[in-house]
Simulated assay, not measured.
Amino acid sequence: MKEKDLLFFQPLWRRLAVTLFCAGWASWEWLNGQTLWGLIVSGITLYCYWTLFHTFEPRREPD
């Protein structure tokens, strides 16, 4: 991720909002029988989780 992206996603609520939005969208596609879009958006959701939670390192304020 670029530095400006890391600054935008520092607050936890933004990371949660983006990931939950993608999960909701994926659920909507699966419930409506849109398998291709369900797979695509599920992949985006997994990428959001991986990037924004699993490997994300919040910036530390210098002491």
Rank of each mutant, 00 (worst) to 15 (best):
R14L: 15
L20K: 15
L52N: 05
W50P: 00
L46P: 03
E3A: 08
R14I: 12
K4I: 12
V18I: 15
P58K: 08
F8I: 10
M1R: 07
G33Q: 07
F9P: 07
G24Q: 03
Q10I: 02
F8E: 08
G38K: 00
E61T: 09
W50V: 06
L16P: 01
H54I: 07
F9I: 05
E61M: 05
F21M: 08
L6W: 12
E57Q: 08
R60L: 11
L31A: 15
L36S: 05
L16G: 05
L12A: 11
Q34A: 10
D63N: 11
M1N: 04
T51C: 13
I40P: 00
P11A: 02
E61N: 09
Y47P: 00
D5T: 13
L7H: 14
G33V: 03
V18R: 14
F56L: 00
L6P: 04
Y47R: 11
E3Y: 09
T55M: 04
H54T: 05
S42A: 14
G38C: 03
W28Q: 10
E61F: 10
V41G: 00
S42L: 05
W37Y: 07
L39T: 09
L52I: 02
K2A: 06
R14W: 10
A17T: 12
T55V: 12
I44M: 13
Q10H: 07
S42K: 01
D5C: 08
T35R: 15
K2D: 11
W25I: 13
L12Q: 11
S27I: 11
R15T: 09
T35C: 09
L36E: 12
P62T: 03
R60K: 00
T19I: 13
